[in-house]
Write a protein that binds this DNA or RNA. Structure first.
Lengths: 340, 340
DNA sequence: AATATTATAGAAAACGTTTTCTATAATAAG
DNA sequence: CTTATTATAGAAAACGTTTTCTATAATATT
């Protein structure tokens, strides 16, 4: 069904070698022949079988991306970023859900050993260090996204979670707030931990002691933000004037919980989120938050990975770690305490 | 670097034929030998090169999915659904952004002609009929998602957009509303058109004439919902009591616009959306909306596609069209007109 | 006991490329 | 004018599988 290199060769009256050379832009063929072959390629709509060439070159021209089970808008943007750079270099991206590639050995096999991908971008939690370590040892090209490399000898791109947490908290502090609730995400995810650390540091720098009851446990879902604040309110009442939610979704949940109790935002409670999700300008009140550039993250990760793939993975090359800066987006959900 | 079938054969003292037979569960090998080979496969961690076997079988064990440029949470769920069924059958999914596969011929070539995918799920607008037609003619396995097949001879899975639009409007009507604004999505996208048609039909069935100024033009973004309602309010003031937004994002934008003018929801204006996005229970007030099961959509699409691939695409087989029912989720953003 | 059948296994071809190695023709150098 | 060099091109091997075809051993049938 598909046209092969042989048919092109035949029609152009050359050997398949020549066709291959023409298609790949290699030299050893005269301008005249090249032109003729090019014409036939065009006419027949030839394009080489990725499998056949991959078999020879040992390159699939695909990279993998493994993302956590629940795809949110969060990952969509990352994938967007990745795809934009890979497409340019003729690479495709195969997507796999984390639990398949990490948890079940089977899929990891499918991914790497079957040579379906030349490398992969992993968005995993820090619990998967052993698996990743073995992948690196195996010579597979890996870049980690949105998590700490720990002691792993691997390229990483992440955003400045600590800085963002610090920035958010400092902003509330400068607004005059000192009783600031924090809603943590999933505690064993690095980004969550680091945002929380930013919070702690900011308080510490102002000489404010961290009240342990002020740290609520969420899991990055809207619902967890809602539930944790509701519970806090039930237990302690309104003994705080601000909330730092470690993502926007939980911030939205928190707003709902406050609203349910008739507490007005930002008049009675200021709130700042993290992520700058597409919805945050439109919630009521518009959410002050830390903006992270997810598409950029994807782009950079893809660039690091392709660089490693194309340059031939010199194992042991010193790992690169890029941290993407974040930005405070001031909207209306946080105001000065004195203006209450 | 990777272990090949040869090494397995050598270590197990059999021919590569036998190894192949064992791995693929074909007969022609005694239980004893099978066991021994299996053991070696395990020890060496062998898994066949997808490229080599694909070259022979002419199957890549990958399917493609082409989605519109901006990935939202919407597509994440679809991909989730697709992946859950493909993974089970040993297929991977390659993702491509629409403009690459459709608009630039180059990427389409990469996708299909290079034999990187055995079939694809296309989430496209209805403007791409010609391209899709040529793909079908070329014998490629295709299923269309979330759009009308028109005259195309192709499998399709979509949700009941018309029914949903009807349901939403009827609900508002039964609540006593008769002046109902509608916010359209991108007009040349089938799902938008159909939801709007549902609206029209519901009004017509009640004998209510459609006021042309009541139909606002959005483009499915939050911002377009916000802007169109804001503009309407500026021009005509509050001469309606309800809004049907053809997706949740525009509903959220609409709520913001109303809120900005001090109009309270649902007391002064009832509103119903479409999608049941994860955020809708948490916006204020919680959004009444039409729920569509996107993951289900992805699952079914994948099943249709794999069925076609595995059964060997008998070209010309009658196309199947599955329509997934929707459901009205009653929350707090729409109330009876009399309870005003 | 001879023959037909079946179970088990391997040899070799094939899939569509890339690449190395060789051969010829054209040009440059002496 | 011969010889060295370079440009151009093809033949053939190789990549790692699957599959067809053939061969032998084991068992069943007469």
């Amino acid at each position: 069904m598909n046209v092969t290199i042989k048919e092109v060769a035949k029609k152009a009256n050359v050997s398949i070698t020549t066709v291959s050379r023409v298609f790949n832009g290699n030299d050893g063929v005269s301008p005249k022949t090249r032109k003729r072959v090019l014409k036939v390629i065009e006419e027949l709509g030839y394009s080489p079988s990725a499998m056949a060439s991959g078999l020879k070159t040992n390159l699939s021209k695909c990279i993998g991306i493994a993302v956590p089970d629940a795809l949110g808008d969060f990952y969509g943007e990352i994938i967007d970023g990745i795809e934009s750079v890979t497409a340019e270099k003729g690479y495709n991206v195969i997507i796999s859900l984390n639990h398949r590639i990490i948890k079940e050995e089977l899929a990891g096999v499918n991914f790497f050993k079957a040579k379906k991908v030349d490398g992969a971008i992993l968005v995993t939690t820090s619990g998967d260090d052993d698996y990743i370590h073995s992948l690196i040892e195996g010579g597979y090209n890996i870049v980690l996204l949105d998590r700490d490399p720990h002691s792993l000898n691997v390229d990483t791109v992440k955003i400045d979670n600590f800085g963002g947490g610090y920035m958010a908290t400092e902003y509330l502090l400068n607004l005059g707030h000192s009783s600031i609730l924090v809603i943590q995400g999933i505690p064993f995810i690095d980004s969550s931990k680091e945002r929380f650390n930013g919070y702690k540091r900011a308080l510490k720098n102002k000489g404010i002691k961290i009240k342990s009851q002020f740290v609520l446990n969420g899991n990055f879902t809207v619902d967890s933000g809602y539930l944790s604040v509701k519970k806090y309110l039930d237990n302690y009442g309104l003994d705080f004037s601000a909330i730092f939610a470690t993502n926007d979704q939980m911030a939205i949940g928190a707003i709902k919980a406050l609203n349910d109790k008739g507490i007005s935002i930002p008049e009675q409670v200021s709130i700042v989120g993290f992520d700058d999700s597409y919805i945050s300008p439109y919630i009521i009140p518009p959410l002050t938050t830390i903006k992270q550039r997810r598409e950029e993250m994807g782009k950079i990760a893809a660039e690091l990975l392709l660089d490693r793939i194309i340059s031939g993975h010199k194992k042991g090359r010193t790992p690169r770690q890029v941290i993407i800066p974040v930005e405070l987006i001031k909207r209306e959900s946080a105001i000065s305490l004195s203006s209450k």
